[in-house]
Nucleic acid binder design. Structure first.
Length: 309
DNA sequence: AAAACGAACAACCGCAGCTTA
DNA sequence: TTAAGCTGCGGTTGTTCGTTT
C-alpha cells in the first residue's frame, strides 16, 4: 500500500484554477464522466494532479452545488449531524446534497463551532458535539462500526427531520453513513447531484456572493438559463450551432466555437442521469425507509415523525 | 488613505481503505 | 493472498476580501 506519487512536485500546477482549466476539466467529464481521475491530467493535458481535478470537480464544478448562505435549517441540520456523527463531513454532506463536505467543514470551522461555543458558554448543553465517534473503529470490528454508523445516521436523520419542521431535507445522496460502503458504490454517482430533477435546479443555485470569475455555479446556471439548446452532441469545437442564440454575454468563448455554455451544458446533461429520482418524486427508497426505521427488524417501530418530502 | 486584522473560502497534504491484477 | 494503484476523507494551510483602526 505504498503512497501514490500523486501531486509530486514536477510540472504540477498548484493554486487557484483558471476558467480555462475549469472548462477543460468540465469538457472532459462531459465526455467521460467523473471518475478515473488518474487519467484526467494526462488525457486533458491539465498540469494538475488527479486529486486536484477531483477536488475541483466535487467541490466546485459539479452541478447542483449551492454556495454560501447556509439557511437556519441547514445550520441546524449540520449541528445535529455533527453532534451525532462527529467530524465526518462526507457523511454529513450526504444529507445536504447541495453542499460539499468541504463547504460544510469550512462553515463549521468558521461559523458553527464558534456559535456553539458561545451557546455552550450560555448553557446550551444540547448543542455540545460528541467529541469522539464511537470507538469501534479498530480493525476487524468494522461490522460493529458499520452498525453503529447506521444507527447514528438513522438517529441523526430522524431527529433532524423531526426537529426541523419544513426542512427540505433531501434523501442521502449515498448510503447514510460512510461505513455503508457497499451501498455507496460511487460517491460521484449521479446521486451526488440533486439537480437531476431534484429539489434544486441549476437555475436555482443561489448566486454566490462573489465568485472569483464568471464560472461560479451561479453564473454557470445563469448562462445555462439563456441557452436554448438545439445544439446536440458533445462539446466539440466548430459549427454555427456553437453560438446558441440564448448565449449570454457572459459566455466565455475559447475559440473554435467552444463556449463555456456549451461545454458546461453538456456536462450538466451528463449529470442529469435518470437513475436518481428527486425526493419529491419518490416517496422513500427502501434504504431510506429502512434507515428511518428505528429497529429495522420489525419495521413497525417508526415513531411518529414528520417527513417533509 | 493606508495598514492591520480577521473572516471566509479554495486548495493542498497525507493517511486510510478499497480495488484490482 | 498480497501488494500496488487509486480514490475518498479529514485536517490544515494559503490566499483573498472585507472591516476596523
Amino acid at each position: 500500500m505504498g503512497r501514490p506519487p500523486c501531486c509530486d512536485k514536477d510540472g504540477v500546477k498548484k493554486g487557484p484554477w483558471t476558467p480555462e482549466e475549469d472548462l477543460v476539466l468540465v469538457s472532459y467529464i462531459q465526455e467521460h464522466g467523473p471518475g478515473n481521475w488518474r487519467a484526467v491530467p494526462t488525457r486533458t493535458g491539465l498540469m494538475r494532479c488527479s486529486k486536484s481535478c477531483r477536488l475541483r470537480w466535487t467541490n466546485y464544478l459539479r452541478p447542483g452545488i449551492k454556495r454560501g448562505n447556509f439557511s437556519d435549517q441547514e445550520e441546524k441540520l449540520i449541528v445535529h449531524l455533527q453532534a451525532l456523527l462527529g467530524n465526518r463531513w462526507a457523511a454529513i454532506a450526504s444529507y445536504l446534497p447541495e453542499r460539499t463536505d468541504n463547504d460544510i467543514k469550512n462553515y463549521w470551522n468558521t461559523h458553527l463551532k464558534r456559535k456553539l461555543q458561545a451557546a455552550a458558554a450560555g448553557g446550551d448543553a444540547a448543542a455540545k458535539p460528541v467529541s469522539q465517534r464511537p470507538s469501534s473503529s479498530s480493525k476487524g470490528q468494522w461490522e460493529r462500526r458499520l452498525q453503529t454508523d447506521i444507527n447514528m445516521a438513522r438517529r441523526a436523520l430522524r431527529e433532524a427531520l423531526t426537529s426541523l419542521d419544513g426542512v427540505n431535507a433531501p434523501a442521502p445522496k449515498d448510503a447514510a453513513a460512510d461505513g455503508v460502503a457497499a451501498a455507496a458504490a460511487d460517491s460521484d454517482s449521479p446521486a451526488a447531484s440533486s439537480t437531476s430533477g431534484g429539489s434544486l435546479s441549476l437555475s436555482q443555485c443561489s448566486p454566490s456572493a462573489s465568485g472569483p470569475y464568471v464560472l461560479t455555479t451561479a453564473n454557470i446556471s445563469r448562462m445555462l438559463d439563456g441557452w436554448t439548446s438545439k445544439a446536440s452532441g458533445p462539446a466539440t469545437p466548430g459549427g454555427a450551432a456553437d453560438s446558441p442564440s440564448g448565449s449570454s454575454a457572459s459566455d466565455v468563448s475559447y475559440g473554435g466555437g467552444l463556449t463555456a455554455t456549451r461545454v458546461l451544458r453538456a456536462a450538466f446533461d451528463y449529470e442529469r442521469k435518470p437513475a436518481v429520482l428527486a425526493p419529491a418524486q419518490t416517496p422513500l427508497s427502501e434504504f431510506e425507509t429502512w434507515l428511518l426505521d428505528d429497529d429495522n427488524n420489525n419495521g413497525h417501530g417508526v415513531p411518529a415523525m414528520v417527513y417533509p418530502f
